[in-house]
Design a binder for these strands. Structure first.
Length: 481
RNA sequence: GCUGGGGUGACAGAGCGGCUAAUGUGACCGCCUGCAGAGCGGUUUUCCGUGGGUUCAAAUCCCACCCCCAGCUCCA
């Protein structure tokens, strides 16, 4: 069975075939690091994390690059305005690289906490200035760029004639309405030969802090350039996947694709599959700072366990606009608890003589794979996993090794979705644990004597401290809730 | 205007030509339990934006219409 994935290059689901047998190369557009990671960022990264894990699970070796943008994103007009990093640093009274250092550290920590598989390379734009300047030279040499006033622009019309632009999202050049976003300034239009052209190198004005010498001017690179350069550097001139948010369908990715082709002056497609993750909305509206419906990962981690957040991400399809709300996270927590309860049920059972669960294990693996092969249908995969839980809970009388296998399978498949279920939620405190055990022992004595009022009192108080007690035929058990 | 994605039960959300339309949440009922929790079973649930058409058969394909979201040089 092979993966079918929706390709923005062709606007259809395509069967995935790696360029090199058994090896898959993925480039993911990462974050401009001037600000904290928000739910939307994390949702997108989780999608690529799942892609990575799933391909690995299927037996491929995966090489995954995700960049961090620390220069070149401008606040205002397309190729004008202040660098975002520079602006944020000034507001916080920090050096730009000081801010970046701080933000990157935070980013790594949060990515780890969210159980994102660590990428093979996480390159930064400022570390590739020489390569970027070389790339601009190549593009000029190959005739797809021109210098104007110390800045260098990509000649989109020329590129379009030879290779076709934009290609992504089912559009052609005539579909674009120039300046529809109202952000292209007058002076910028004057320098450019065509309004579609975009900057490869921008001459810095005197107030700019982040700038580098180049053959054209002291300046800084355009924001599309870094991804082309770092992609080529770490994955080669051709690779399998390029991922990003839907906002990149235009203009970032078409520009990047154009640059990739222009740098190497190639006739083939440099990247086979361009895949894009839809944005999430908050209470039905686009998440934005001005609306105040903006949630950072740090905010979320204060209220919810990382596994709950990953369960939420796995419950939505990467290509659907999904709504994020407090409620949806609470719902995700319930789903997670169902998985956890199922595992707990297995752990607490001695097992019996039945064997009917045996055939459900290949069944779930098969169903899981079928769902995932269909454009990473994680919501379907989740529902199958929950169905599997129902089968397990109905058949706890199976032989212990079969129950164990069912448990392993559940842990394994949830792991593919980035949900780390086996994380032990103990108290981290042996002393506390022995006290709890002692209390429960006493409680059992009380229950035997029918002194339920006191017994219930113990249970209620433990519950208030976050310890859930459950009685069963095989005695009481407790867990941190 | 153009481009892309949608409209499915109280809610969230799969299904994209044929099984009683998944799964979760909520509500209600039952089993189990001293009670609770977890789990199991049942009800809410023959329903798929509207109107036509194709077909033995349509939520799924075609046509028309209505509505929603997003993008069209800051953005995951």
């Amino acid at each position: 069975m092979s993966l079918k994935i929706y390709n923005s290059l062709t606007n259809q689901k395509e069967e995935f075939e790696p360029m090199e047998k058994d090896l898959v190369k993925i480039y993911s557009c990462g974050q401009t690091i001037y600000d904290d990671m928000h739910v939307g960022n994390a949702k997108t990264y989780a999608a690529w994390d799942i892609l990575n894990r799933y391909l690995s699970w299927k037996g491929y070796e995966v090489f995954h690059v995700m960049n961090i943008t620390d220069v070149g994103h401008l606040t205002d007009d397309a190729d004008r305005g202040e660098d975002k990093v520079e602006k944020a640093a000034r507001e916080k009274h920090l050096e730009p690289m000081e801010l970046v250092t701080e933000q990157v550290r935070k980013w790594y920590r949060e990515m780890d906490e969210l159980n994102m598989k660590r990428h093979n390379v996480i390159p930064r734009a400022t570390g590739h200035m020489i390569e970027m300047i070389e790339a601009v030279k190549e593009i000029i040499n190959n005739g797809f760029a021109y210098e104007e006033n110390g800045s260098v622009y990509f000649d989109v019309e020329k590129f379009n004639e030879e290779h076709g632009y934009p290609k992504l999202g089912g559009r052609t050049l005539d579909h674009l309405e120039t300046g529809a976003g109202g952000r292209v300034s007058e002076e910028e239009l004057e320098e450019k030969r065509s309004p579609y052209d975009f900057a490869l190198w921008i001459k810095a004005d005197s107030s700019h802090i982040m700038k580098w010498p180049s053959p054209w001017s002291i300046g800084y690179p355009g924001w599309h350039l870094e991804c082309s350069v770092m992609g080529i550097k770490y994955l080669g001139k051709k690779f399998d996947f390029h991922t990003g948010g839907v906002d990149h369908i235009f203009p970032h990715h078409p520009n990047e694709r154009a640059q990739n082709i222009a740098i190497k002056d190639m006739d083939e497609e440099p990247i086979n599959y361009w895949i894009h993750s839809e944005h999430i909305t908050v209470e039905g509206e686009k998440m934005s700072k001005s609306k105040g419906n903006f949630y950072t990962v740090a905010d979320l981690l204060n209220e919810f366990e990382p596994e709950v957040i990953r369960t939420f991400f796995a419950s939505i399809h990467y290509r659907s606009q999904s709504d994020f709300s407090f409620r949806s996270l609470v719902e995700s927590r319930k789903k997670l608890e169902r998985f956890q309860n199922t595992l707990r049920n297995i752990e607490e059972r001695e097992g019996g003589n039945d064997v009917d669960l045996e055939e459900d294990i290949p069944w779930i693996k098969d169903e899981f794979q079928k769902a995932m092969d269909n454009d990473l249908n994680t919501p379907l995969a989740m529902s199958k996993l929950l169905e599997f839980c129902n089968k397990v809970n109905k058949n706890l009388n199976n032989e212990k090794p079969i129950l164990e296998e069912a448990k392993q399978t559940l842990v394994e498949l949830l792991g593919v979705l980035g949900i780390d279920i086996k994380k032990e939620k103990k108290t981290k405190n042996i002393e506390a644990e022995s006290h709890i055990d002692l209390l429960l022992e006493i409680r059992e004595k009380l229950r035997e004597k029918g002194e339920y009022e006191l017994a219930d009192h113990i249970r209620e108080n433990l519950k208030k401290s976050g310890i859930s007690v459950e009685d069963s035929e095989e005695g009481p058990t407790w867990y941190v809730s």
